[in-house]
């Protein structure tokens, strides 16, 4: 049985750290970084990347269109 594994790539310089992606994620993958970008925003990052399925929910709700989503089938 194949399982989908995903990763997101956040444009950290453009992310405003609004956090709207966090509750949109069904697997609690995303958190806001302790670090800030050059504008002072705590940008989003994958605190739990292995749990990501590449479902794109985070990207759908991202108000700044700064999330890219990758998805790959892993075979057993």
């Amino acid at each position: 049985m194949a399982k989908l594994q995903g990763r997101i790539v956040v444009d950290t310089e453009k992310c405003k750290g609004c956090g709207v992606c966090i509750p949109a994620c069904p697997f609690d993958v995303i958190a806001l970084a302790d670090n800030v970008n050059s504008k002072g925003f705590h940008y989003a990052y994958m605190k739990n990347p292995e749990a990501c399925t590449g479902c794109v929910n985070c990207a759908l709700v991202c108000p700044d269109a700064v999330i890219q989503v990758y998805r790959k089938k892993a075979t057993a």
Partner: peptide, 21 residues
């Protein structure tokens, strides 16, 4: 079953891009 755990390098490839601006 025991799943193969892919690395970020495996996944973040052009052909796997499913959402982009």
């Amino acid at each position: 079953e025991q799943q193969q755990q892919l690395t970020s390098e495996d996944i973040i490839q052009e052909e796997n891009l499913v959402f982009d601006r």
